[in-house]
Design a protein around this nucleic acid. Structure first.
Lengths: 359, 359
DNA sequence: CTGAAAGCGCTTACAG
DNA sequence: CTGAAAGCGCTTACAG
């Protein structure tokens, strides 16, 4: 014997009506119901109305699990982020969701910056047969790369600008972002410069923050500035508290530091608050520069100089790219660089003759 | 004729291998492959190893779309939030995801505080046949309620404490949160009190923020304090900028206000920064109290007095509740109140003889 | 404009 | 410990 649907003489009590139930009530075939739901213009007006009435009466909600299996289209898009608790990544998710539109459902997974999580997540998301995968980052294990390639769906790497994308990429160069931050501080005449970020902790690491630190270092080298410190403190993700702790360490080791770049506006804000608590004037004694253009940096007093990136735009452009691919377009460049923008605000100022003045 | 799978004499080029491909390679039936993947202990060791080798060799990733349809279990849980861009809601999402475990996939939808969006989202999520729905808020259209009831799955309303939950609820009373905020300010001897929140803007409204404003008003009435202002400004969600703008309006209309409750730490922070820009001392001239215990309020200087709620805990408890229900437990109370906690910090201080002193 | 048949890739519910 | 048969609820690919 095989499965039995329901027993007993009562044929009704339609807990969850199927398309079959609707078709019977409307006196048509399931194909006609399917058409009314997918593209009503294919069905005669009176038939259509009868079907809609039956749908309404039964409170029928189509089963997309069955529909997806049958049509080989799930309308799922997988999204892998380091964390949900970061306004920039949340903006990217919203941008992506909006660009894809209501007919697509995002399947969000997060790694908490753990390298090993990505492979598990990719496998688990691919099992849902998404039509595309959007992944923050460009570092993947060999096994992950193989799965991604085998899956035969578009893959968009975001929040970076890889030389050789796995498939597509939308983002910007984190290395250049760090470099631009250093150059801004250098252009203000500051020479004793530091950067604060997180350190790799076993499996947990922020590759993009590290790239920004590397870019910062490179700019100092290019400028022939010897007086540079890269302080890696604590594990990713960085936070307000991280910035405060790192700034505290930095000021103890190097009290006459003139300029600090934090890999995120979160830690820049924490560093700024730590300075206030210690009576260290910003930008009078030390200039502070962040990254990401978070709302907290725009709204605090003084406002934080930063590197702006288009977080929501990254999601939006990735979504637009995918829609074009879904509709069969050949797509343009493989790696889209949305660029960065230096935004000088109140926490950085010109150094003049041994002390700093406000810009 | 019906669908043809693939043409040509080449049987291979296995773009996306199915369970059938694995079973053939391993020389077993698909049932055996299915068992190896679901519960290896059911299969003899050598068979199991042969199957695992075939899985590995083909890079087989099971199709959960088909599996879900067949087993009637999707392992999806739907989650409806007002926005992803709010650290409290992001914490709730992470708490829920962690409590459910890796075998469940969250289907997240957000309304942007638009009442009409909920109905569309519920319909669209139910079509994915989730095994439960978790929804921020307790206000639903009649049509939404009907769908929810018909769906015959557990529904958990979160971030509130309704008298009559639709099904289950995990949260706290927003009314009591506002009331507690007012009482804290009153207990400091402050009498000229205001609250700032958002106003309903067509379909866009923050029902929970409004409940906090109502609780605030009620506490003033109970205390016989006449000097109270509720300022509703701008549309939800509130933000740092919202708090700054509202504080600016408030100070213009009512320069001698003594205490302000903001419905969110976001706006409390904005209000605090606006005071700094205007040279209004906090808490010297005016005390400020927020809601939510956001990191920004903990880390800024002075730190913001607030009402703490267990955002991650709401997600975690909802997830635990659902797991118990999935495993057939009868579950306990229908509405779980996680409570609130007044956290006095640097932005509120005792009023003594016409002026305020730090606590 | 409408419908009958087949099948999407799994798991259920047996039987041996 | 293993497998053959049936079916989950839709859509595809026809035919009329």
């Amino acid at each position: 014997m095989t499965r039995q649907k329901k027993a007993g003489p009562t044929p009704a009590s339609p807990a969850k009506p199927t398309m079959r139930d609707v078709s019977r009530l409307a006196g048509v075939s399931t194909m006609t119901v399917s058409r009314v739901l997918a593209d009503p213009s294919l069905v005669a007006l009176d038939t259509r109305e009868r079907v809609m009435r039956a749908v309404e009466q039964l409170g029928y909600v189509p089963d997309l699990v069955a529909g997806s299996l049958s049509s080989r289209r799930t309308n799922f898009v997988g999204l892998i982020l380091p964390t949900l608790t970061n306004s920039n990544f949340a903006d990217t998710a919203q941008g992506l969701a909006e660009a894809l539109g209501a007919s697509y459902q995002l399947l969000i997974g997060y790694t908490l910056y753990r390298g090993g999580e990505e492979e598990r997540l990719v496998r688990s998301l691919l099992a849902r047969r998404p039509q595309a995968l959007v992944i923050a980052g460009t570092l993947h294990t060999a096994s992950t790369r193989r799965m991604l390639l085998n899956a035969d769906i578009p893959v968009v790497e975001i929040w970076d600008h890889p030389d050789a994308p796995l498939d597509k990429a939308v983002g910007f160069s984190n290395f250049e972002a760090g470099r631009a931050a250093a150059r801004h501080l250098l252009s203000l005449g500051l020479r004793r410069l530091a950067a604060i970020g997180s350190e790799a902790d076993g499996d947990v690491r922020d590759a993009r923050g590290e790239a920004r630190l590397q870019g910062f270092s490179a700019a100092l080298r290019e400028a022939g500035v010897e007086d540079g410190t890269i302080l890696r403190h604590g594990a990713a993700p960085v936070s307000y508290g991280h910035g405060a702790a790192a700034m505290s360490l930095l000021l103890r080791e190097w009290p006459d530091v003139e300029g600090v770049f934090a890999v995120s506006d979160s830690s820049a804000f924490g560093a700024l608050m730590e300075c206030r608590r210690r009576g260290v004037e910003v930008p009078g004694q030390v200039s502070i520069m962040g990254f990401g253009d978070f709302e907290v940096g725009r709204e605090c007093e003084p406002a934080i100089s930063t590197i702006r990136v288009d977080a929501k735009g990254i999601g939006a452009r990735a979504g637009e790219l995918l829609r074009a691919l879904f509709e069969g377009a050949g797509a343009g460049a493989n790696a889209l660089d949305l660029g960065i923008e230096v935004v000088p605000r109140g926490t950085t100022a010109l150094r003049v003759a041994g002390r700093q003045l406000e810009t």
